[in-house]
Simulated assay, not measured.
Amino acid sequence: MQQVKAVIARAKGAPVELVTINVPDPGPGEAVVKVQACGVCHTDLHYREGGINDEFPFLLGHEASGIVEAVGPGVTEVAPGDFVVLNWRAVCGQCRACSRGEPQYCFATHNAKQKMTLEDGTELSPALGIGAFAEKTLVAAGQCTKVDPRARPAAVGLLGCGVMAGIGAAINTGGVTRGKSVAVIGCGGVGAAAIAGSALAGAAEIIAVDIDAKKLATAKRLGATHTVDSSATDPVEAIRELTGGFGADVVIEAVGRPETWKQAFYARDLAGTVVLVGVPTPEMKVPDLPLIDVFGRGGSLKSSWYGDCLPSRDFPTLVNLYRQGRLDLDAFVSEEIGIGDIEAAFERMHHGDVLRSVVIL
Rank of each mutant, 00 (worst) to 15 (best):
L242T: 03
T243M: 02
T243F: 05
T243D: 03
G244H: 11
F246Y: 11
F246A: 11
G247R: 07
A248W: 02
A248P: 00
A248E: 04
D249R: 02
D249E: 05
D249W: 10
V250L: 00
V250K: 08
V251I: 03
V251Y: 08
V251K: 02
I252H: 01
E253Q: 02
A254I: 01
A254V: 08
A254K: 01
V255R: 01
V255D: 00
V255L: 06
V255I: 12
G256Q: 02
G256W: 04
G256N: 04
R257H: 12
R257Y: 15
P258S: 09
E259Q: 09
E259L: 06
E259G: 02
E259V: 10
E259R: 00
T260Y: 03
W261V: 14
Q263N: 08
A264L: 13
F265G: 12
F265K: 01
Y266F: 15
R268N: 14
R268C: 03
R268W: 13
D269C: 14
D269M: 15
D269I: 13
A271I: 15
G272Q: 02
V274Q: 10
V275C: 10
L276H: 03
L276G: 12
L276M: 14
V277I: 15
G278Q: 07
G278Y: 04
V279M: 15
P280E: 04
T281A: 12
T281N: 10
P282I: 12
P282A: 00
E283A: 01
E283D: 12
E283N: 07
M284K: 01
K285F: 09
K285G: 02
K285W: 12
V286N: 09
V286Y: 14
V286H: 09
P287R: 05
P287E: 07
D288V: 12
L289W: 03
P290L: 11
L291E: 13
I292T: 12
I292H: 00
D293I: 11
D293M: 09
D293H: 04
